[in-house]
Design a protein around this nucleic acid. Structure first.
Lengths: 240, 240
DNA sequence: CCGTACGCTTTTGTTGAACAATCCCTCAAT
DNA sequence: ATTGAGGGATTGTTCAACAAAAGCGTACGG
């Protein structure tokens, strides 16, 4: 008979832990609001009233304020003293700043493709394939989601939990921009083929080449977003 | 007569704004606790009791909890459900992870030295010189602080506010490690000369060369810390 | 001796109410 | 049109209360 729980079994159990731990209400509220903001339920500039949201969610103001603090900390909300919490209105400068960050992190991670373990490289390709099949089926919101996973997987090549989290937050913030773009098909569609090329280079360990492709990719995406921004109708003054 | 306040005059006033705004209590408490944790007032593993600290600072539990949330979010504290807030005990894996992040960010920023504006490059050299003069005077805690500014200045070469903030947090977390190292002179002393070399290469725009120097620098520092960790007496089980 | 079950104490998680401070809007006055 | 004075609404902060959970000591049974 097996004498006990092997380390492998323990690891398998540890995977489920996130499903068991009941996070605090503040954490759950944070997560809920985060996804809603990312998905664009609250248009940028909206004020998030403590009373209204607290009553809608059935949580007290104090608990809600803890959630708001966290959202502000990850830039998914902005806090104005004595005025309240607002959904951020990203300026063109913010877009440039975010893409500068992405070029630095994703580019640096892609360059180290050769030294990254194979499982991580396979995850990159898997994300591309998931995007491809979603595109064929015409489910463009899934394409967007898969595209985010693709970039997340690239950042994961760096092999650092902190980099992963950083990337998660950066992409969440980017979500604030995406849902203002008119058509996800028009925006994400042309990038799928380029994703595939980058993924294959990463599989082969051609980091340098993958990086330069990726930098061009990000520069193009940035310009496209900035153009849409300038053409866009609403551009209120900076909130900060 | 001048008809009104010109835009230039308004900009000059806007400079002073940061001195006027009074942050909320929660923000001030956060900042205070952050610096105390960084400086090592609370040894790693300490439990931060809501009642004790709240009473000591004269703030209510609710306000304090908002501050705790923020600190947890930037990894300067860890939250264990129904158990409280603890000063993190960094594992060797955390050290490796942090240095992986630093190599990615600082390396990538240094590589772009040639395209960075001259003011930012001068800031790098200024930080080195500040470290040199502090070392000559034997003020080793100032040396540590100047060293942190040096790396902050390198990250600032990327020209992204988000990268700056990321670096600020990473270095704050690193403070958790530094103050467990026995002697700041022994640790930081030998690096000053290397800082100078890197700074000069950055001034000249030799990004590639500066990056490789920096990567070697960071790898050496990481090993030194890990060695001190293994030799260190206290190494409790991982808290997370 | 070891392990377990039980109850007690402490601390956290969350809520509701209260009050001061601040902001925004409206309206009157110059 | 600009300024100043209410007034209402919202946030900032505190306090008190209770439920839930974790930690601790003790007695019980093997």
């Amino acid at each position: 008979m097996a004498p006990g729980v092997t380390e492998e079994m323990a690891r398998a159990l540890a995977q489920d832990r996130s499903g068991l731990i009941h996070a605090s209400t503040a954490d759950r509220v944070t997560e809920l609001l985060r996804s809603h903001i990312m998905e664009g339920l609250f248009p940028p500039g909206t004020r998030l009233s403590e009373e209204v949201i607290g009553q809608a969610l059935g949580v007290s103001r104090n608990t809600l304020r803890e959630a708001f603090r966290l959202l502000c900390h990850e830039r998914l909300a902005v806090h104005q003293m004595n005025r309240g919490i607002f959904v951020p209105v990203l300026t063109p400068e913010d877009v440039t700043d975010l893409y500068e960050l992405r070029r630095l992190v994703e580019g640096g991670a892609a360059r180290k493709a050769a030294t990254a373990p194979m499982t991580r490289r396979l995850a990159v390709r898997a994300a591309v394939e998931s995007a491809e099949s979603a595109a064929e089926a015409g489910r463009w919101f899934e394409v967007r989601s898969a595209d985010l996973h693709f970039h997340q997987a690239i950042a994961a090549l760096a092999g650092s939990a902190r980099v992963d989290e950083l990337m998660r937050r950066a992409l969440a913030e980017l979500g604030l921009i995406f849902h203002t773009m008119a058509d996800p098909e028009q925006f994400h569609g042309p990038f799928i083929a380029r994703n595939r090329v980058i993924a294959e280079k990463i599989m082969l360990g051609h980091g340098q080449s993958a990086e330069s492709d990726l930098l061009a990719y990000l520069a193009d995406a940035e310009h496209q977003i900035l153009d849409a921004y300038r053409a866009g109708p609403s551009r209120p003054a900076k909130v900060s």
